[in-house]
Amino acid sequence: MLNYTLRRLMFTIPTLLLISFIIFLILDTAPNDPTGNLPLTIPPEVRAQIRTSLGLDAPMYIRYLLWCKQFFVNEPLNLLYEWFGWCFNTCESRLRVTSWATRSPVVDLIVERMPQTLWVVGMSYVVGILIAVPIGVISAYKQYSWFDQLGTFISMIGFSVPTFFTGVLLIVIFSVMMPNDSWFWLPSIYDTTLKVTDWASFGAQVRQMLMPVMVLALFNAAQISRFMRASMLDNLSQDYVRTARAKGLKEKVVLLVHVLRNSMIPVVTVIALGIPQVFGGAIITEQIFKVNGLGQLLIIGIQGADIPLVQTLTFLFAVLIVIFNLVADILYGLLDPRIRYE
């Protein structure tokens, strides 16, 4: 298993390099002008100077290699410096991947926005899983019961109604129509500056997370509960279930030990594969509730033609996808004794 993991990790390096190059290539061919958002009064010569100062005159491969150096060498060195104080030749003045729009290092922007995304989107993923697993189990066990029908209906809604609709609907109900002093009123704008220091601020934090988390949790739960249900149904009709019953085991044990343990294998894999999307920040939901997370950062970057920002974020998402693919494979091997990686 360790061998397999190491081999897979080695293989990811050329893969990721190739991906980073392709992203760079695509962004480079896009008709983007970082000076496009500047006031029209700025004369063309000045615009040209700005572009030169951003290094845009250099040929594509030079710019790519520079990005590589900044991202793969300078940024890790900088992290070592900031976290452990380790210094390799220069410390402070190292050239980092810098956002064109804000002139601050891209990695700093990402680190700044990570917590909001993890809290809101990550929490919605966890809540979604916690809702989905029991619903999937019961729906499968009581196939075609009213519970199953209701579950099917709700997950169909959760799956097919876009989050920008459910999100706005919740805002209309809980922020607009609900009186401001009502206990049920919820804020529609996520306040990043809120610090949890006592019970009151904790309550406020929960309230402002409630709507975005619910919107995304519904979406996640819809998908995962369907998976769970299908996987349980697959296993419920297997011969080993009959054996378990013929041994005189309680129905609860048959279901929650024998069947669930088998059914979780593909579901865990799907859950692991979905984690990169958490970091990707549910872009639309973050926009609706004004959560300044990674998804929103990406949108801002795209609108401002902030190539280094978009390049770096997109590449990091690619890294996460590749890593969690590996994690899913490893989990599969750990959960299913029939799988042995050499």
Partner: peptide
């Protein structure tokens, strides 16, 4: 009780 197919009658995990 013993069943017909020993390949599928035991729980694989």
């Amino acid at each position: 009780f013993i069943f017909q197919d020993p390949m599928t009658s035991l729980n694989p995990v």
